[in-house]
């Protein structure tokens, strides 16, 4: 083996280290800009219609429950929001949901693993942004949707196709940075 190929071989560790370092730098930058998130997991439902389900209404809410068929043919885009009264981040996102609801964006709520009385008290205290309100007490429909924690919010266009999913509270940044552009695009 010649000296030059020996040289090349001994450059390999440096090359690998530099490539790794560049990758790590990309990740760290991505964490800052939001393009790299070590925790977020994408939904498999993006670009697809919701799975089949039919959920009863939350008792005493005066709202109607809903089924998958009702999400297929809509007059305009809809947000589907999984929430629970015991979920702390749900309190954080509630003002944003209220704002959207006041602006006329339909939010269909699915109350997850909750007691109807607690859920009702939560809405009485923080306001009720939901156009329709179903209840998934066993949490099985949530699993069919691939929900892995509350709150989760899905954006469904007028054809009934899921375009976007947010796992975690809808903060003002998410509202302005993601939801408003989506509403404009799929209006």
């Amino acid at each position: 083996m010649s000296l030059t190929s020996r040289r090349a071989l001994m450059l390999a560790p440096l090359g690998l280290a530099v490539a790794g370092g560049a990758g790590f730098y990309g990740m760290l930058r991505g964490i800052g800009t939001g393009s790299y998130d070590p925790r977020g997991v994408p939904s498999v439902l993006i670009g697809r219609t919701p799975p089949d389900f039919a959920l009863p209404p939350l008792p005493d809410s005066g709202k109607s429950g809903f089924a998958a068929a009702e999400l297929r043919d809509l007059p305009g885009p809809v947000l589907v929001n999984y929430w629970a009264s015991w979920c702390v981040p749900c309190i954080i996102e509630h003002p944003q949901l209220m704002r959207l609801s006041r602006e006329g964006v339909p939010i269909w709520g699915i109350n997850y693993k909750d007691k109807p009385r607690d859920a009702g008290a939560f809405l009485a205290r923080h306001g009720d942004p939901f156009a329709r309100l179903a209840m998934d007490e066993p949490g099985r429909v949530a699993i069919d949707w691939g929900v892995y924690g509350v709150p989760e919010t899905y954006f469904i266009d007028r054809q009934g196709i899921i375009r976007w999913r947010w796992a975690g509270p809808v903060t003002p940044e998410v509202l302005d940075g993601d939801i408003r552009p989506l509403l404009r695009r799929y209006a």
Partner: peptide
């Protein structure tokens, strides 16, 4: 395989 596929269909590769 069917059981794993059931969960995989809902939650993806992760």
């Amino acid at each position: 395989q069917a059981v794993v596929a059931y969960v995989h269909d809902r939650y993806g590769d992760f």
